[in-house]
Write a protein that binds this DNA or RNA. Structure first.
Lengths: 123, 123
DNA sequence: TATCGTTATATTTTTAAAAATATAACGGGC
DNA sequence: GCCCGTTATATTTTTAAAAATATAACGATA
């Protein structure tokens, strides 16, 4: 922003450019920060319910996310086991790990974009 | 995305990277696409109510947005006149025009970022 | 076969956001 | 002084999202 645009807005704390990013199919988002973190937590804990708990998300919502992700992907991203030892559990596939990795890099580039815009802001 | 990450997701229509951008103060957004368009419509029509109508936004919400914008800015962005010919009306200030212009350019840079990411996607 | 914790699913309740409705204040022009 | 359309504000209603609650299926293990 050029000098003339300064001081238009109040700034008790610093003003910054921020935003959100997601993958979109058919105009609706299906792979944003939430699903990514959920996949990571499932990988960590081996359990959808425990992953949900750590994200302070209801199990229902977590399960719906997993279900939606598996439906949209050619091959499953999450493989659930029902019953058995510990009552069951879930693992994520290599493809899920690839998606997580891609999204991590994407977020890094986005963060760099936001930081650059914020740096050049000085409202 | 590298070749190995291809074909993980179904793609009836094309998959693209999309996102949203806003100015943030104290952790909460206060100047996103909505307010920008509202200011533009007010400039066009000279009326908050008419601007709201064109955006299919309730007058109440539009007025609250205007009020919030004027509160956060050092000098008003919108100058309302109550009563008088045509019952009143509103105009926007030069500072509002500056903000709109800045946001337009910001969106252009963001659109370029999204286009580049989408181009390099090929999920 | 009884137990366990998880997956899977339906139903209800709560909460929050949005929309709708109503009404007063305003001031120039007739 | 009345009319008009807009600003300004409160209240109610509707809608949608989120949360909470409940329960069955599952299968290895003991």
């Amino acid at each position: 922003m050029d000098q003339s645009t300064k001081h238009i807005l109040k700034r008790e704390p610093a003003i910054r450019v921020n935003g959100s990013l997601w993958l979109e199919s058919d105009g609706k988002r299906f792979f944003g920060p939430g699903p990514v973190e959920l996949l990571e937590r499932i990988a960590e804990t081996g359990s959808i319910s425990e992953a949900a708990k750590r994200m302070k998300m209801s199990y229902k919502k977590a399960w719906e996310l997993v279900s939606a992700l598996n439906e949209r992907s050619v091959n499953p991203l999450v493989v659930p086991r029902t019953g058995g030892e510990h009552g069951g559990g879930s693992t994520i596939t290599d493809e899920a790990r690839e998606l997580i990795d891609y999204h991590r890099h994407l977020r890094q580039r986005f963060a760099a974009f936001l930081a650059e815009e914020t740096k050049n802001l000085k409202l």
